[in-house]
Amino acid sequence: MSEVALSLSGLTVSFASERGRVRAVDDVGFDLVRGETLGLVGESGCGKSVTSLSLLRLLDPDVARIERGEARLGDVELLSMGERELSRIRGARVAMIFQEPMTSLNPVYTVGAQIDEAIRLHRRVSRRQARARTIELLSRVKIPAPEARADAYPHELSGGMRQRVMIAMALACDPEVLIADEPTTALDVTIQAEILELLGELQRAMGMAILLVTHDLGVVAEVASRVVVMYAGRVVERGPVDALFAQPLHPYTAGLFRSIPPVGASRDGGARRKLPTIEGVVPSLRELPRGCRFEPRCPARQARCAAEEPSLEARGDRDVRCHFPLA
């Protein structure tokens, strides 16, 4: 039996806007299993980053409010616990890395000093012990000459090296869960490949669960074992990567796959074939359709879809939010 590291259910997050509150995330849930990578995918504005930030309550409380939901990490619940308790979990049991390592690192401290601090925040160790651990972490993320690099400032490192530093810092306290929000989006593909490989190796060695938030279905196919697809604040489909990629059940998921330029199959005698697209645009959170949120753009819509929003229903080992799933 696989052991659930983090279980999220019913997460609903609203934001203040000029015309009242809008729901950016609506009843989102998933289980993150120990040792596995779960891909959380969707396009801009679908709520995937809001979901991941909510887990550690990193949203600006002046505008964002977690209306409902539970996030169980073993014996504790993250969404309702006190700020002081939560600060003992953040960075220790649940760590996070972001898209742009330059903005997550402090430019005026050496990277070594920042990792030392992350360690000493959660562990009672001497400076010397912390530095030894920092060097060990830097070599673990395969930074060459870690002793020397610990004294480097962030701007002296390349984007790929900075992301390695962020990963080292995230791993400082052996977290159970690592949330990686678009960790390779700002990197070149050859560097991305190395970082993904590194995350996989570290996961196998340390057994942590990874929540990988990304817009890149290629990245998900390579590293995730299960995937959650979001659209306009809702989970529309959820299941094992192999089955979901082989046969998407939700018309949105299917449309998303089709709009990726296919590898090695896009030309007929030199003429460029038209890429299938999803017509229209994502609805505004202020004016969500009454029924299924994808209905106005759905090529398979029927009368019922505009009237009644489907619920997330199980189909074998998968879940889909559609009245007329594709299989």
Binding site: S158, Q192, A193, E194, L196, G218, A221, E222, A246
Partner: peptide, 21 residues
């Protein structure tokens, strides 16, 4: 070969190049 392919069944022939540009 570094481009992720959106097909979990694709067998990777990844040639990671050492180091950075």
């Amino acid at each position: 070969s570094a481009v992720p392919v959106p097909d979990p069944r694709a067998k990777r022939r990844r040639l990671t190049v050492a180091g950075e540009p």
